[in-house]
């Protein structure tokens, strides 16, 4: 038994020596925690929130339609950096005090501050052509607006101050969004639903933009614009394939080209009729 005990003690010393050397003799590297997977349990990390904001910025929010290098609207990469200066600008009319509030305000109340040169024509940069993105066609939820702010703050290289959405609201509301859309019942609703009012003017639109041709006027000339095309056919083509004919003074690639898959037949008809002037308010 004496030998056995010695052997046991010897072996114990050897293995503990190995483990001790590992613990005290080698530098300790703590491996990184596994990367967080997207939409794990409704919880969301700031990185994912920022990524969501980027997705909305480029996709659903349609922001890049105008905020791009073509100069239709100011670039937003630096907006978080310049926000403090904007707030001090005498032309600023809003109530925001922080960068986060400023960006939020410019999204839901765009005219609070209009960057010089980007205002609606004839308003001397007091009215912004940008729609309220929490309403209408774009209709971002608070969570989504928060995501876009987070993204803009991140892109601008400033601290992200947006609070993360609470678990359920985060991923959920963006996914459920299609359920809220219902088929427009009249032309006015259709204009609003598809965001035509963002760029176009029309008698049915209360406050239209001037990024695209005035739809109240195109009805009169539509029949003569393209050979062999009736006015209705021309307008239909201009909606489903906007780049087919570009009106003078406007840019190509501005109007979304996916209306063919977005609109129902009745909505398309209502819009065409309204443009042709067949339907009045």
């Amino acid at each position: 038994m004496g030998q056995l005990l010695k052997i046991v003690v010897f072996s114990l010393c050897v293995v503990c020596g190995f483990a001790g050397y590992t613990t005290f003799g080698l530098p300790l590297i703590i491996p990184e925690a596994p990367p967080v997977e997207e939409k794990l349990t409704g919880e969301i990390t700031m990185d994912q929130y920022i990524a969501l904001g980027k997705k909305i910025f480029e996709g659903k929010g349609t922001c890049t339609l105008c905020h791009n290098s073509l100069g239709r609207a100011p670039l937003l990469e630096q907006v978080a950096q310049v926000a403090p200066e904007r707030l001090k600008d005498p032309r600023y009319k809003g109530k925001a005090t922080t960068t986060e509030e400023y960006i939020h305000e410019s999204m839901v109340e765009p005219s609070a501050y209009v960057v010089a040169g980007f205002g609606k024509k004839g308003t001397n940069d007091t009215v912004s052509p940008m729609p309220n993105i929490s309403k209408g066609a774009i209709g971002l939820s608070d969570v989504e607006i928060g995501a876009v702010i987070a993204f803009l703050q991140d892109v601008g290289g400033t601290e992200v101050t947006v609070a993360l959405p609470s678990g359920d609201a985060g991923a959920g509301s963006t996914e459920e969004e299609p359920a809220e859309i219902k088929v427009a019942e009249n032309a006015k609703e259709a204009f609003s639903k598809f965001g035509c009012d963002t760029c176009h003017m029309h008698p049915l639109i209360e406050e239209g933009g001037d990024m695209g041709p005035d739809l109240g006027k195109v009805g009169a000339t539509a029949g003569t614009r393209k050979e062999g095309y009736s006015a209705e056919r021309f307008i239909r083509e201009s909606i489903v394939n906007p780049n087919a004919v570009i009106a003078e003074g406007f840019d190509a690639d501005t109007m979304p080209d996916d209306f063919a898959t977005q609109m129902t037949v009745s909505e398309l008809d209502m819009i065409i009729n309204a443009i042709l002037g067949n339907e009045s308010s």
Partner: peptide, 25 residues
């Protein structure tokens, strides 16, 4: 197939060393 259990971390070397020591004993 991702390990999403609470134990999906990579143990440090000393942790593993003592674990191995326990198993060896």
């Amino acid at each position: 197939l991702r390990d999403n259990s609470v134990n999906a971390f990579t143990p440090t070397l000393p942790f593993a060393a003592w674990m191995v020591t326990a198993i060896v004993l």
